[in-house]
Amino acid sequence: MHGPSSPPFKVAVVWRGDAQARVEARPESSRFVVVFAALGRHGIAAEPAVWVEGQADLLRAQLMVMDAVLVWVNPVTEETGAGRAALDAVLREVAEAGILVSAHPDVIDRMGTKEVLYRTREMGWGSETYLYRSHAALAAEFPSRVFKEPRVLKRSRGNGGIGVWKVERGTGADVFVQEARDRSLRTVPLDAFLAERASDFAAGGTLVDQPFQARHLEGMVRCYVSGTRVVGFGAQYVTALAPPEHGRAPPRLYSGPDDERFQRLRGLMEADWIPQMTALLGLKPDDLPVVWDADFLLGPKDTAGEDTHVLCEINASSVFPIPDEAPDALAATTMRRLAEARVRWTSRRS
């Protein structure tokens, strides 16, 4: 992979923690041990780089001597609600210095927020999706839609069910509202629920509005991708927006890219949907993260009796755990991009 005089590439693996976690971080004891091992098998020297809120200078100094930075940091923490604006500022500086960052914050902004559901709504994975950029637009447009059919509202940023609500018409002016995070169910006047949503538009936030998928209890398929190639699947029954009497979902079951159950989905992703998405979002194939995933619910069957798939989320900022096949795939993608960058750099110098 390298010539005799080529030094190994240096890669930092970034995740969130506190000061003690940063000091004690070791590849062999981290939850990313399989990622470190895969990078090592591909001739890449990888080290931990724990992001500690308030220690931007420390992280910046570490990352600036790397060839690449691979990041696993959620957009919002479930425990404290902390975002990652300070981290993103560091990552943008690092990328400007010519260091590969995956996923780059600008790429996450385009594909890893719920707005991607609106921007790709005309694709084969799309549904009747709306985007509210202001509370006034939500108040004016949402009532007629929810009185027609159950809808799902999603904040532009979030994870773990944070900021996701199923809203269904009740009696009179009431609606039934279920929160995905804890499955709590309440009856509330629609005007009161809409008033609660005013804070979601602070600091440029938006809300995405999708139809509730009636087949959601039949399961969700998570399609794992490295760059532009599918590298595995995760199958799981979803109960986040199920009636409270349903039990919690069993663990996700992982499989490799050749799982025969999902070859039609794999073909659609690689041949059609990923190229269409990158074009719509103004991205290049090598802008896509070294590992990301797309979550699909089952839509109505088509005229041939085949299942359709409806996109409900893309995860681009912190995709883990992953199928057994994924670590070597993401390491190979990282290695290819770094090797190509080194060739371009060498060509410019010669």
Rank of each mutant, 00 (worst) to 15 (best):
F193H: 13
A195P: 00
E196I: 14
E196R: 15
R197I: 06
R197C: 12
R197S: 12
R197V: 04
A198H: 07
A198G: 02
S199T: 09
D200Y: 03
D200T: 04
D200V: 01
A202H: 09
A203Q: 08
A203I: 00
G204H: 01
G204A: 07
G204V: 08
T206M: 13
L207P: 14
L207C: 13
V208M: 11
D209N: 12
D209W: 14
Q210M: 15
Q210P: 08
F212V: 01
F212T: 02
Q213T: 00
A214V: 03
R215Y: 13
R215G: 05
R215A: 07
H216R: 13
H216D: 10
H216F: 11
H216K: 11
L217E: 15
E218G: 08
G219I: 04
G219T: 07
M220R: 09
V221Q: 00
R222E: 04
C223K: 01
G227K: 07
T228W: 00
V231S: 10
V231C: 13
V231M: 07
G232M: 02
G232Y: 03
G232W: 01
F233E: 10
F233L: 09
F233W: 10
G234D: 04
A235H: 15
A235V: 15
A235R: 15
A235N: 13
A235I: 00
V238W: 03
